[in-house]
Simulated assay, not measured.
Amino acid sequence: MTPPRRTRRRPQPLVPEPAPRPPQPAQPTAADGRRPRPNPERLYSVAGSDGARAELDLVTLIVARTAPPVSATPEQSAVLRLCRAPLSVAELSAYLGLPFSTMTVLLTELITDELVHARAPIVRQAVPDRSLLEAVMHGLQRL
């Protein structure tokens, strides 16, 4: 005959546990799991009816020249706040959730008003430094 196992009594907490939170509503997504596209009306109001666009690439860097003026739209203000440090057009498009085509129209307006400056990305040298190659070669020869 085995003796019965004793169980320890745990003290009851003085403060009752908080009730579980209700589940948060899920973010609406498209059938393939991506975020839904913005309304076409909103894109038209951001881009306007003018079709003029500057020659911008996905990797073109945008830098703000000034703080957002009072007359700026919310999207323009957001771009000017984000571009205190150089950001590419692709990054801006992702941060604001706007398609590239709408972003180019918005940036064209800012470039025309001289509120931002667009510049080509900094490209590293295609050929490495000769002294670095010689150091690697000498290191390999010593092995």
Rank of each mutant, 00 (worst) to 15 (best):
P4S: 07
P4D: 07
R5P: 04
R6Q: 13
T7K: 08
P11G: 01
P11W: 06
P13E: 05
V15N: 12
P16M: 07
E17T: 08
P20S: 13
P25Y: 00
P25D: 06
Q27A: 12
P28Y: 06
T29F: 03
A31L: 07
R35E: 06
R35H: 12
P38M: 01
N39W: 04
N39A: 13
P40D: 02
E41M: 12
L43Y: 05
Y44L: 14
R53L: 15
E55W: 05
E55H: 11
V59I: 05
I62V: 10
I62N: 01
R65G: 06
T66M: 06
T66Y: 02
A67K: 02
P68K: 04
S71Q: 04
S71W: 07
T73C: 01
Q76C: 04
Q76L: 00
V79C: 03
R81I: 01
A85Q: 12
V89A: 05
V89E: 01
A90R: 14
G97V: 10
L98I: 11
P99M: 00
P99F: 00
V105P: 00
V105Y: 04
V105E: 05
E109M: 11
L110I: 02
T112H: 15
D113C: 07
E114P: 04
A118N: 09
A118K: 04
A120W: 09
A120F: 08
I122T: 15
V123W: 11
V123F: 09
V123H: 11
R124P: 13
R124Q: 13
Q125S: 15
A126T: 14
V127Y: 09
P128F: 10
P128R: 12
S131D: 14
L132Y: 13
L133G: 05
M137A: 13
M137F: 10
H138G: 07
